[in-house]
Amino acid sequence: MPNDHNHDHSSGDHHHAPKVRSENEKVVLVAFLLTFSFMLAELIGGLLSGSLALIADAGHMLTDAGALALAWAGFRFGRRKSDDRRTFGYMRFEILAGFVNAVTLILLVGWIAWEAVMRLIAPSPVLAGPMLVIAVLGLVVNIGVYWMLRRGDRDHVNIRGAMVHVLGDLLGSVAAIVAAITIWLTGWTPIDPILSVLLSVIVLRSAWMLLKASMNVLMEGAPNNIVVSDMQQTLVADVPGVEDVQHVHVWSITSGQPVATMEVRLSDSADPAATTAAIKHCLSTTFGIAHATVEIDWEHREDDCVLIPD
């Protein structure tokens, strides 16, 4: 029976995607409502005061609200169970949302840089008083939202993406306060676009890291903490009965959910069931992989070829 294989999965029901913590969904939803509500207030304040800086910051907060809405949708869809077409469930939707967040941030930074150049070329009048009041209120709201997001699962790509958005707007509120005070005291309006560009550089770095992380998952790359060659060497060295490990594939279904498949060649004296259990234990404890499919190379064990049940 050389064509029989052992497809051994880790313990647990692998027919259902891991549950997303409901706390994440609630935190992101409340953060979205706060951000969207203050965005409307800031937009109205900007229109009434004629402050382009506040209108631009309202646009920034609108982007934040969109990112939080995407994150909430990711968690909402992520709780759906798997079906015949999506055997791992809908967890990957969260990574798609994180990718959109990163791309949006990069585009936003480009827009801010363009606006900053335009304002340096043709400065616009700014009412420092209303700008300062609204910027302080925005800082309070952003601190509250950021604190709420920190209570969620910060290892989640969507929580990280939302935090990057809110952190960018929090720093934007600080810059607006500094700019408003400077304009109030000196009348020097170029301080506003200059600070916006400096803060955008910080946001761009975080956005780039988020983009790389989400792209790695979408491209089914190995998690950053796992080196396939090291995994092969560890299994051969630490698991008795394992002579060779080939055809290794490691990827992530979503943030923090690595999976692996591999083919192993066993020694003649090794017990297939016991050795497979030892491989699973090593993958779980050493590499954090709780879901693995292990196929045994039976071509070198023709006399012992049996089908090992899950």
Score class of each variant (00 low, 15 high):
1 M>I: 05
1 M>D: 06
4 D>M: 08
6 N>K: 09
6 N>I: 00
8 D>A: 14
13 D>Y: 08
22 S>L: 10
24 N>H: 07
26 K>R: 15
35 T>I: 04
52 L>S: 06
54 L>I: 05
55 I>H: 05
56 A>I: 01
56 A>D: 05
56 A>Q: 03
58 A>K: 07
64 D>Y: 04
71 A>S: 15
74 G>M: 04
76 R>I: 00
80 R>S: 09
81 K>E: 14
81 K>R: 15
87 T>G: 00
88 F>T: 08
97 A>E: 09
102 A>K: 07
105 L>H: 05
115 E>H: 07
132 L>H: 07
133 V>I: 15
138 G>R: 00
141 V>P: 08
153 D>Y: 07
161 G>L: 05
165 H>D: 05
165 H>Y: 13
167 L>A: 11
170 L>M: 14
171 L>A: 02
178 V>D: 01
180 A>R: 07
181 I>S: 08
185 L>V: 14
186 T>R: 09
189 T>V: 15
191 I>S: 09
197 V>S: 12
199 L>Y: 03
200 S>I: 10
217 V>L: 01
219 M>W: 01
223 P>G: 00
225 N>W: 08
227 V>H: 03
236 V>C: 01
237 A>K: 14
243 E>M: 12
244 D>P: 02
249 H>P: 00
252 S>D: 01
258 P>S: 11
260 A>P: 02
275 T>G: 11
278 A>K: 07
279 I>Q: 04
290 A>E: 15
291 H>K: 10
296 I>Y: 00
296 I>P: 05
298 W>C: 04
298 W>G: 03
301 R>Y: 06
302 E>L: 09
305 C>R: 01
